[in-house]
Amino acid sequence: MVMGTVTTARKTRWALLDIVIVVYALIPVLWIASLSFKTKDTLADGNFIPREWTLQNYADIFATNEFIRPLINSIGIATIATVIAVGLGMMAAYAIARLDFPGKRALVGVSLLIAMFPQISLVTPLFNIERELGLFDTWPGLILPYITFALPLGIYVLSAFFREIPWELEKAAKMDGATPAQAFRRVIAPLAAPGVFTTAILVFIFCWNDFLFAISLTSTEAARTVPAALSFFTGTSQFEDPTGTIAAAAVVITIPIVLFVLFFQRRIVAGLTSGAVKG
């Protein structure tokens, strides 16, 4: 009995605390969502729940190149950077997990250093370099720095996953009559896939969310990604308040992240913690 009441009281306390934190964290997001559904006239009425619902803002952003073009840039740049970073990261992580080579600790140390490096201090040199090389305001101009910063993250998370793979299985497969290629394809690859997938999601989110490089290394819609493009929204006429459309665009680019996290929550947590604890 006593035990029961104690745990109930504890549960209630925890539940309250959880609610407070979730509300605190979600209010800005919900507020943006709420703004995106409001009509132009009720935009500034201060109501949390829109009094007049509309999808006009969404229709507007998809009607202009102002949003569509950056969306394409975002998807393309993040995808290409992810594929390259994860591809390279897999090779590096395999070496770190499986082989003993001189400079292994240095490699891990340097990648940690790069991951921690304050990105803002690189913006000006990168800006100058890219203008010299003609990379400024192009896709490669963003993809390259993204790879630089996503690679250490990828190496970290992947090597933590690779270390967990029981490599004796490779020997077992060979004894069972597999060629090295068969052992990789039928035993190692299926076991490595979840780790690679998780890393890809983390890297993709990193690239997708970046604002600093996107705003500094682009000047037109040729390579501007959505986070940067949002700050250039003007609305249909110069005198129109673009708040509603900005809110709608913000919601649209948040959706993939929310979906990723909802579906792959456990894997992402595993990836982050294994990287954090064992990296």
Partner: peptide
């Protein structure tokens, strides 16, 4: 093998 090395998947 000592660890049995069964394929977990």
């Amino acid at each position: 093998f000592q660890s049995y090395a069964l394929y977990p998947h």
